[in-house]
């Protein structure tokens, strides 16, 4: 029904996560209507990201070149390391401006049911980075797989680097949330970690 180049665009767009055929058609028609400059800028951005973005050789964050901007920044605290599951988890932590150390991206979380074992994560590279590190912050997701990963790493670090302090992000209630909707595990942890005012 559609002209072959347009149909090809619809087909490619519908491969994106969360994009069905109807949305893909709407996006394709939008691109057809938009200026050549905007459309080519999008194509160029996609091409650039595929050609230029690699994994940082130190922390496995996304990088343009061999090292990411955080590992290249000499003002960052070398004695503090924050462990996250995926590269996109670095962004919300950076937005808090609370952490000035460096990161280590594991590339996932342990999940025996899905067949993700310790060998599938960048754990050996993490253990090899303990020189000069005083604290490792385990910032894996507060999910069952994230907790299992944090427990596994904590046990391994206590054995391999007993002088390194291993900490875990606190669990608690989201700001603006309602106690009524808090689950029992979160509320229990919020109580256990309550602070004096």
């Amino acid at each position: 029904m559609l002209a072959p180049p347009l149909q090809r665009l619809v087909t490619e767009l519908s491969k994106l996560p969360g994009i069905g055929n109807r949305t893909a058609q709407r996006l394709a028609f939008h691109m057809l209507r938009t200026s050549e400059q905007d459309a080519f800028a999008l194509a160029e951005a996609i091409r650039d990201v595929k050609l230029k973005i690699t994994l940082c050789e130190i922390c496995f964050n996304l990088a343009e070149g061999p090292r990411c901007t955080i590992c290249l920044d000499e003002r960052r605290d070398l004695s503090s390391l924050c462990v996250v599951e995926e590269a996109q988890d670095v962004i919300p932590i950076e937005r808090t401006h609370e952490f000035r150390g460096r990161y280590h991206v594991l590339g996932g979380a342990l999940s025996p049911i899905d067949g993700v074992e310790p060998e599938d994560l960048r754990l050996s590279q993490l253990y090899a980075r303990m020189d000069g590190v005083r604290e490792v912050v385990l910032a894996t997701n507060p999910t069952t797989t994230g907790e299992a990963t944090a427990l596994h790493i904590a046990a391994a670090l206590h054995e391999r680097a007993p002088d390194v302090a291993v900490t875990r992000l606190a669990s608690g209630l989201p700001v603006g949330g309602d106690l009524e909707y808090a689950d029992e595990v979160t509320l229990g942890r919020a109580f256990a970690g309550r602070r004096a005012l």
Binding site: S111, P112, I113, T144, E147, A148, E184, V185, G188, R189
Partner: peptide
């Protein structure tokens, strides 16, 4: 609505692994 949250098993790696294996076997 929660019947049981089993919070302590979430703080022990071996218990988490045992629970995962049990659920996998049933599934």
């Amino acid at each position: 609505e929660t019947i049981a949250a089993y919070p302590r098993l979430r703080e022990d790696a071996a218990a988490l692994d045992g629970a995962a294996r049990a659920c996998e076997a049933v599934a």
